[in-house]
Design a protein around this nucleic acid. Structure first.
Length: 546
RNA sequence: GCGGGCGUAGCUCAGGGGUAGAGCGUCAGCUUCCCAAGCUGAAUGUCGUGGGUUCGAAUCCCAUCGCCCGCUCCA
């Protein structure tokens, strides 16, 4: 096999996007109406791929999890349960989770410098010179803002150092929010006045209204992450399911973020599917559990085909972490659309301490406080009131009552599917029937992720081969997604299956009719061997399991 | 949101004011006992969308939507 093209080279991503469309993995949403930015539909093969990704995750997290053994690397045995919470939740959820503040900003654009600023972050001071008045805006730390403003004012009024006393400052530094005269503002990176646009609202959460009456009281948000549905149900799950700490609650579902610039195929989109798990444990063991989940999640991607150097784990440096967290790691993949050497996030594994449960109980905590305290509003009361419900946990053995710490592996299902797709994409060469090398496109999916597991092909369309093949097709179809194809030359049919990543092709030939054996062809090696038809199920099953 | 590039058949693209082309793919048939481009035949587009200029627009102009790249933003 000749050298395969690796991601990052050439027009790799264009080829993948083209293949996805041509073969029915992904289509642009609402395409017949011109498309919708940041929205993609999964076609017949794509939906199978993505569902296989989610199934593999769910199996690993929930249905195949062994509650009673102590897994390698784990501090103890643990339980796992699932959940499916709603997309619409009480508006207070997002205030206490921090999303409301984080995702809700007024922004201004500078027409001159093309930069965009958060409206509340721009401060400045009125100054007068040469009979003109200007509001010199800066983005700087409080102790440096006068220095920066002075330098900019000098430059703006075209003054020399000795004329510094001609600058007449008027008043103290104030926020741009308190300035009405937009046309007299010198934007932080501009040389002329009045280059800033009016402040515009940027809401990264999708807003809607509950009920038919539209008013402020009815405003609701589409969830920007699934995790909060888990935190809000923590008590319900504990009270109803007999789980004991340590345990995890997992959920797969759609989330929505009104990204300003959706880009890079399905990597940054406005509607996406998450696979999230919140793992609740005793604070004294949380660091061990963090390391366990971090390594386990990495191993999951590797086991499903991202085994090469395109996958990395990036541990956040100490100074990137919130003080209440003992660790955060991103699992990242070198997507072909990224510059060489850069990686895009597939999953974040975060040690979140007791931040979330306490915020939903006491009121939104100030993430910068240490120890964590409730963030206060201007009136000295909690900025966002919590539920007031006790979300602590009583250990039934020791009787100790504590607020559990949380380890959160949060993965993107669409991003994972895209990474598996990119990693699987491969162009190699294979000889045609005259021995000449021809290019071959093949998706080397892990058999568990492949949309179709087996193709059944009668070698020629005569001598009873189709009938025999159809019988085998029906038999295999009881177990897996199987494809039957009797059209055109067998070589071409092999290539078609390679291109959609079908791991096995079973061919019925003249020998089948005399001795009852079929050939099974391996997608990656293109080697075939003769087996009994009833062995096929076991071969495929085994490949999917490993 | 800003700047640049691009939208013609399922895909890759050619054409550049006078009523739409190629290759591949697809489909049908033939051939074929193992790795796509053998043979024969067929289908397919209001040239992204809307408007304007013109006797006439895929072609020129404007707007809009989408894609790609760079900024910006975002985890």
């Amino acid at each position: 096999m000749a050298a395969a093209e690796s991601p990052g080279e050439g027009r790799m991503m264009e080829k993948i996007v083209s293949l996805c469309r041509r073969r029915g993995f992904l289509f642009q949403s609402s395409e017949i109406y011109g498309g919708m930015n940041g929205c993609w539909d999964y076609g017949p093969l794509g939906v199978e791929l993505k569902r296989n990704v989610k199934d593999a995750w769910w199996r690993d997290m929930i249905s195949a999890h062994d509650d009673i053994s102590v897994l390698a690397g784990a501090p103890a045995a643990f339980e796992m349960v699932g959940l499916d919470s709603t997309i619409l939740m009480h508006p207070q959820v997002w205030k206490c989770s921090g999303h409301y503040d984080l995702f809700h900003d007024m922004m201004v654009d500078c027409r001159e410098s093309k930069k965009r600023y958060r409206f509340d972050q721009i401060r400045g001071r009125w100054v007068e010179a040469k009979g003109r008045r200007a509001f010199v805006a800066v983005i700087a730390d409080a102790d440096a803002e006068q220095e920066v403003a002075h330098a900019r004012a000098m430059k703006f009024f075209n003054l020399r150092g000795k004329d510094a006393d001609k600058l007449v400052w008027d008043g103290e530094f104030i926020s741009l929010e308190d300035v009405g005269e937009v046309e007299e503002v010198l934007a932080p990176d501009a040389k002329t006045l009045g280059s800033l646009t009016e402040p515009r609202e940027f809401n990264l959460m999708f807003q809607t209204n509950i009920g038919a009456v539209v008013d402020v009281e009815s405003t609701a948000f589409l969830r920007p992450e699934t995790a909060q549905g888990i935190f809000c149900n923590f008590k319900n799950v504990v009270d109803s399911s007999r789980v004991q700490i340590p345990f995890g609650i997992a959920q797969i579902g759609k989330s929505f973020r009104n990204e300003i610039t959706p880009r890079n195929f399905t990597f940054r989109v406005r509607e996406f599917e998450q696979m999230e798990m919140e793992f609740f444990c005793h604070p004294s063991q949380s660091s061990e559990w963090y390391r366990f989940w971090r390594d386990r999640r990495m191993a999951w991607y590797q086991a499903h085909g991202l085994s090469g150097e395109h996958l990395i784990m990036r541990e956040h440096a100490e100074d990137e972490l919130s003080h209440y967290s003992t660790g955060t790691a991103d699992i990242e993949y070198a997507f072909p659309f990224l510059p060489p050497g850069s990686f895009g996030e597939l999953e974040g594994i975060a040690h979140r301490g007791d931040f979330d449960l306490r915020s939903h109980s006491e009121g939104k905590l100030d993430p910068n406080s240490n120890p964590l305290v409730v963030e206060l509003g201007e009136n000295g009361k909690p900025k966002y009131k919590g539920s007031g419900k006790d979300l602590s946990y009583r250990d039934p053995v020791s009787n100790e009552r504590f607020i559990p710490h949380v380890i959160e592996p949060a993965a993107g299902a669409d991003r994972a599917a895209l990474a598996f797709l990119c990693e699987a994409y491969c162009e190699d060469e294979a000889p045609d029937d005259s021995g000449k090398l021809q290019s071959r496109t093949v998706l080397r999916f892990h058999p568990r992720l492949a949309p179709t597991k087996v193709a059944v092909l009668p070698l020629v369309k005569k001598d009873g081969m189709p009938e025999y093949a159809q019988g085998l097709y029906r038999e295999l179809k009881k177990e897996f997604p199987v494809f039957y194809d009797e059209k055109s030359a067998v070589g071409r049919r092999y290539r078609r299956q390679d291109e959609i990543g079908t791991p096995f092709c079973v061919t019925i030939d003249g020998e089948t009719l005399s001795d009852g054996t079929v050939t099974i062809r391996d997608r990656d090696t293109m080697e075939q061997r003769r087996v009994k038809p009833d062995e096929v199920v076991e071969i495929v099953r085994r490949a999917m399991r490993t």
